[in-house]
């Protein structure tokens, strides 16, 4: 393997290899050959080149007005956690960079929106319950559940249990949902291959989840503790 660091100790930029579509040669070198076109979406418009979003163009979708308002709301997020102004050319050409408040396009419910009055920002995503690791790697750790759907995974989920148990799916092993209207919790299968277990029964479809139920993901045992129920609500 060639050296990645030059003799002066400086990092080396990787050369970009231009790809030549050499059809005759491909057969010999390719280990995998799915049927051509299988992956191609059928409903793609011809002009799928990059272009900016223009509300109301082309389609007469009734969503257009709502969407435009969505964009406005995003760009004036008051809860910006970081704001950086970069001056490069002149003062009047500085780009103002705002960071949108987290979570990105979070599951919105009316009860969350009406509750965002706290100055600390904690009420943007208030707790509705917790998952406590009672056995396995990360024993003693806990994770907080919010309104709506909580994908439970290892690193790419809304709620991450990254305590060393590699048997937990990365994105979404199971989904714990809190429905504020009925004040009830549910657990349903995630998109990963592995199954989750509720009180030792496999989670194959959405089922009701109750305070102190046990969930098992990989070799991690969790106890579910509810905050929002018939005794308490954030509304």
């Amino acid at each position: 393997m060639p050296a990645k660091i030059g003799p002066d100790g400086k990092p080396i930029v990787v050369d970009t290899v231009p790809f030549k579509a050499d059809f005759s040669d491909n057969e010999a070198t390719e280990p995998y050959n799915p049927s051509a076109g299988r992956a191609a979406p059928t409903d793609f418009s011809d002009s799928d080149a990059t272009e900016p979003y223009a509300p109301g163009s082309k389609s007469s979708s009734s969503n257009a007005a709502t969407i435009a308002i969505d964009i406005e709301e995003v760009s004036v997020q008051p809860g910006s956690s970081a704001q950086v102004t970069v001056n490069v050319v002149d003062d009047d050409e500085a780009t103002q960079v705002f960071r949108a408040a987290k979570p990105v396009e979070a599951v919105a419910t009316s009860s969350v929106e009406s509750a965002t009055v706290s100055e600390s920002g904690a009420m943007e995503d208030p707790p509705v319950g917790w998952l406590v690791v009672v056995d396995g790697m990360g024993k003693g750790e806990f994770a907080t559940l919010g309104f709506g759907q909580n994908s439970i995974g290892r690193s790419g989920a809304r709620v991450n249990l990254n305590f060393g148990d590699r048997e937990i799916s990365r994105d979404s092993h199971v989904v714990v949902t809190f429905d504020p209207k009925s004040a009830q919790f549910f657990v349903s299968p995630g998109t990963g291959k592995s199954l989750g277990y509720l009180n030792d029964a496999p989670i194959l479809s959405p089922v009701s989840l109750s305070d102190r139920d046990h969930l098992t993901l990989g070799s991690t045992k969790l106890m579910f503790v509810s905050l929002c129920d018939e005794r308490f609500s954030w509304a």
């Binding site: 418009s45 799928d48 990059t50 272009e51 900016p52 979003y53 223009a54 163009s57 780009t95 960071r99």
Partner: peptide, 14 residues
């Protein structure tokens, strides 16, 4: 395919 956020040399970015 249209983009809702893109760099176009605009004054303000989110």
């Amino acid at each position: 395919h249209q983009l809702m956020n893109v760099l176009m040399g605009q004054q303000s970015l989110t």
